[in-house]
């Protein structure tokens, strides 16, 4: 098992990733998955995204609304609310601090 497992890393930051994906605009589940994959998170699974959305919604960070569609199914859109935006700012900062610490650490050791 590798020391750094992308799946494990992803688990820790998926909330932040989903919140960030919604910052650019409301989206439905599959749409958000596509955004994440387009951004480079190839390994993210559909169930993970759906589950994360359900949890963020249950925790009060997201609002939802349904958009009827003539062709195809009705779509449930997720949108950041105020709490979600605040959470995005807070965890975003945590991540940046963490990431820069890791960068510093790696550069100090001359690994990168």
């Amino acid at each position: 098992m590798p020391c750094v497992d992308t799946t494990q890393l992803l688990k820790g930051v998926l909330d932040l990733a989903v919140l960030a994906a919604l910052r650019d605009g409301d989206g439905y589940g599959y749409d958000i998955l596509r955004r994440l994959r387009a951004a480079g998170l190839q390994d993210v699974g559909d169930a993970s995204v759906y589950g994360t959305l359900r949890r963020l919604f249950a925790n009060g960070f997201l609002n939802t609304y349904v958009v009827p569609s003539d062709e195809g199914p009705h779509r449930k859109y997720y949108a950041l609310n105020a709490a979600g935006r605040a959470e995005l700012d807070r965890t975003g900062k945590t991540w940046r601090d963490f990431a820069s610490t890791m960068d510093d650490l790696l550069q100090d050791r001359g690994t990168v």
């Binding site: 993970s48 759906y50 589950g51 949890r55």
Partner: peptide, 8 residues
């Protein structure tokens, strides 16, 4: 996977 992500 859903269960793990949703942390229920």
């Amino acid at each position: 996977e859903l269960l793990a992500a949703a942390e229920v």
